[in-house]
Write a protein that binds this DNA or RNA. Structure first.
Lengths: 239, 239
DNA sequence: CTGTGATAACTGGTATACTAGTATGCCAAG
DNA sequence: CTTGGCATACTAGTATACCAGTTATCACAG
């Protein structure tokens, strides 16, 4: 029962320094936690959730828990059946290819634009991310690797001048990430990813929009999880 | 005070027949209403909202109102300042060009794919939509026209086999629509839209993916509101 | 043994009460 | 007249209580 790992009482920092003057809210903190648990599959698809139970685990009332669950349901990570129950959503198999298509369309555009506008400082930023990612690949730090992977793609969106596109991509990526988490991390794949990132970086540095787009499309095509195989191995996790 | 138009008590149908077994919830109904009011600018950007006030107007408690406002804040239509207040969000000017870019990228892809897969029945469906839209243009029915416009673009997403992409587009379109609502409806523009739709339809019928994409990109480029002009005319509505 | 219906034990939805930050305006001190 | 500080009247965030469906159970009739 994965939820048992949440028995510790939630601690909400009274103030968040992060530039924003926005207070960290209990509901938001719970959202973050549940979100992380679902994406990491510690709360697997199909797991039933109860507002009351979660509230007790976190040591808060049902209200903030409820708000967190509502947000998660908007993200498609939980399904709420009124008066009946709430479950961690199964990964909709149809969403996987769709998500890949969206990524190709959107990231193809951002990387193309970024190729035209990238400055030397931008390239330096990408190099720093790639360096960190390479070291994580060397030490087999999968979560750190994934973090820098996201940073790389987000950075390109920012360089392109369309940072809001990354927000869209994050919500789309989530389903892909859940499916990918089921495939055992292939160590060799990490090195490939780094290599593909470097190709993209080089195209950006050379201001070659077409090459950048092609490299990005290729990169995104290489990471499609084999849905059929996953579906047969974890039938309960998909729908 | 636009909110005065909401003094009538909210009526929640006890059951929704719409195929889904999902009960219509008070919070959902309030969300729909507020969403419509914001997009239609009956609640203009910058207007301050209060949970208590809205709850009284609808004749319900604060809870469902609060849930509706939380969903709206996720959609970027309201800004919630904890312990301070809630306002209808200003249209972020930077979001307009970004939204157009997203539409081009995503709809360029869907229309391209749809060109390859469209059946005769699909084309008939588009023709029906176009016919209705033309009649709305003739009678000057702006809201009906807009409805069919959305139906046209949604239909293409469905034909392409990526219906989920339309869900993304809806959330993106909302800011464009708010800005566009400020420009007086140009009657001539409606006829242009119908004409552009027909060009897209013809390309789909001919299974010409490249022409379809080009027609869609052109169509989407033609409807960009003049942000600078709007900004100077309605300074309070943008940020 | 099996199908069926009353019922009890859940679920999430809503209403209300309370807490704790925030903005505002008044008043006094300079 | 300006300005600093404090009292007050807000706001949204959270806790609790209650309501209305849904589902599972189990006794009982066939």
């Amino acid at each position: 029962m994965p939820q048992a790992s949440e028995t510790k009482v939630l601690v909400v920092p009274s103030q968040e320094i992060g530039g924003r003057l926005r207070r960290v809210t209990t509901a938001g903190a719970i959202y973050e936690r549940l979100h992380a648990n679902i994406v990491s599959l510690r709360m697997p698809p199909g797991m039933s959730l109860q507002e009351k139970r979660i509230a007790e685990d976190f040591g808060v009332s049902r209200t903030p828990v409820r708000e967190a669950l509502l947000r998660l349901s908007e993200s498609g990570l939980v399904d709420i059946y009124p008066q009946s129950g709430t479950v961690v959503s199964r990964v909709p198999v149809s969403a996987i290819p769709e998500a890949v298509v969206v990524r190709k369309a959107l990231e193809g555009t951002t990387v193309e634009t970024a190729a035209l506008t990238a400055t030397a400082a931008d390239i330096d930023r990408l190099d720093a991310i790639i360096a960190r990612q390479r070291s994580h690949a060397a030490t087999g730090n999968a979560s750190g690797f994934h973090e820098e992977d996201e940073a790389f793609h987000e950075a390109i969106a920012q360089i392109s001048g369309y940072p809001g596109i990354w927000a869209i991509l994050k919500t789309v990526k989530v389903q892909i990430d859940r499916a990918r988490r089921l495939t055992l991390p292939v160590l060799g794949r990490m090195d490939n990813v780094v290599h593909e990132h470097i190709i993209i970086r080089d195209a950006l540095a050379a201001h070659d929009a077409a090459a950048a787009r092609a490299a990005m499309i290729h990169h995104l095509s290489a990471v499609i999880p084999d849905v059929d195989e996953l579906r047969s191995r974890y039938p309960d996790y998909f729908c």
